[in-house]
Every structure is written in structure tokens, then in C-alpha cells.
Amino acid sequence: MSLDAQILQSLRAAGPGAVSGAELSHRLKVSRAAIWSRVEALRCLGYDIQAGPHLGYRLVSVPDVLHADDLRSRLDKTQVIGRQIQVFQETTSTNDVVEKLARDGVQEGAVVFAEAQTRGRGRRGRKWVSPANKGLWFSVLLRPPLHPAEATQLTIASATALRRAIQTEAGLEASIKWPNDILIRGRKAAGILSELKAELDQIRYVILGIGVDVNLNHADFPADLRTQATSLKAELGREVARPDLAVAILKELDRDYSRIRRGHFAALAAEWEEHCETLGHEVVIQLAERRVEGRAETLAEDGALLVRTDHGHLERIVGGDVTVTVSHQGAR
């Protein structure tokens, strides 16, 4: 852990209290001058650290920036997801960066954030709008001990984890649109796109690409998305601290990933189903030029959506664009 992260960790542990320079110096085994110079550097990043001759140092507020070491220091040591974190000011797409890491043999759990993406992408070549410093745009490298056909478990785990983190951190009631969009009051606030490299019988790696619209304003969304997309800020009426949300998401993802690795997928699937608002509604699924219409009846064991078509036939859906044609009744 970097000295910066250690200093922040000590200051956080003191809560509203202060820690003297002498104590920090003793605890972190560096000179008081070194502590002073790092505190100055952190202030430049926007960390508001008060210092007084008899008080010591006190952390008053943290900026809304993603600081890799700081994020890392706030995660549990045993955690797989986030054991290596990088933050880019700007990149094409964090999935591109993580793909490079994956090919270079980096171990699983590496996370790459970008404050802005120039070519953030969604399903089937769609653009994911990722304006600077307003959202969480990141990718996670996983090397799960799963068969390629079981990769859909990760779709489900990422949805449950993201939903819980948003709910606990922002206090917003969030639901899941099949398979793993996160909706707030029926509008999409976060999306996940995974990319898989696999042989016929074994996964080489999976890149979970996650985008959360945290502090975007209405005007930040392209006009054609404004009725379907939302942000946590828009729903809450105030900004959400992105570093706190990032830490919460990485913790929840780690928890669900470990549930999968321990073979506890059934519990995960049940949680997902409980919050999946697509079930019981009329849906339209567009698979390129093919269109399936019917009622989203239930979920298969592997998470596939079973749709009862108008001919009474039960169709198994694993891909495509799902549109819920009847607005859900639970909206408030």
C-alpha cells in the first residue's frame, strides 16, 4: 500500500478525531517531514486535511476522485476483486485495458477505472456515454473455474452485487431488468457488459465491464436515451460520493464472486429472481431481424428467460434486446 493510502487509512480510522504527526511518523515508519510532504500532495488532489500545531492531522472531507491506492486500502485484504486497481484519467474503454492485462497474464481481480471513456461501449456496438468524473466506468478481470456455459452465472452475480451496492450506498430501491440492467423507477441507471475468452471446455478469462450513471445530469444523456436512462443523482436529488460507491460495489462483487466459487449459485439466482422485474410482463425480444413476443414467464436454472409466445410455445431466450412493453406496476 502506498504511503498516501496508509496516511488516509490512519486518518479515516480516527474518524472526526485527529492524529498527530509524531504518531503517524511512528506508525508508518517514515519521518514527520515525509508525512507532511504527502499530506501536501493529497491536498493538491482535493483531500481536505486540517493540520494544527497541537492537533495533528484531521481528515475533513475527501474529493470525488478515484484514487487507486485509497480505494484499495478500503477493501478487505482477503478480497479477490480489487487486489490490483488502476485508475485512468481517460481511456478508450476500460474493457480494452483489462483485455490487455488479461492477455499479459495478470491474475484475476484486477480492476481498471477510467474517469472518462472515449469509446465506452454497450451491447452490439452501441456507445456507452461516459462523461468525465460523473460516473463509475470500470472493468474487472476474472478467471473463474467455470465451464464456458456457466459464464452466465457471472451475469447474475454482477447484477445482484450492483443492485445491493446501489441500494445500500445511495438508499435507492433498485431492480433488475433481465438479464442484468439495474433500473431505478423503471429507468436504467447501470449496465454490465461481459466479454469472455474461452476454449470449448474452459474459460480463459472474463472481463466484466460495468457502467454506473452516478452524478450525470439529464442533459448528459443523449436525447434519445433521456426517457429510458437515469442517474443516481437524478433520482436522489443530490450527488453520490463515487469513491464510496466504488468501494461498496467492489465489496459486493467480491462477495457474490466468492458465492459462485463456493458453489452457492442457487442462493444467488434466488436473490436475482426476487428483484428481477421483467418476470410476469409482456416483453418483446429483438434478435437482429428476428422478433419474439410474449410473456416473460419464468427463469430457467441457468438464468435464461422463458417467454410464453402468443402461440403458447415456451421460448428460451439467452440474448437479444428485451423491451418490457407493459410498464411495471410497482413503480413509485
Partner: peptide, 27 residues
């Protein structure tokens, strides 16, 4: 694609493609 997991399939062999056996966007 399976539930928003995009799997790029590689040829895994060197050669010439002689036939495409599945139509686009089919399960």
C-alpha cells in the same frame, strides 16, 4: 452472446472457411 456475456469465437486452426452453418442472430 449468452445473457450479455459476449464470447468471441476464434478459429483455433489455420485454414480457409468453406461453409457458414448458422444464420446470423440464431440461437
Amino acid at each position: 452472446e449468452a445473457m450479455k456475456v459476449m464470447n468471441e469465437i476464434k478459429a483455433e486452426a489455420k485454414g480457409v472457411i468453406t461453409q457458414v452453418l448458422v444464420e446470423n442472430a440464431r440461437p
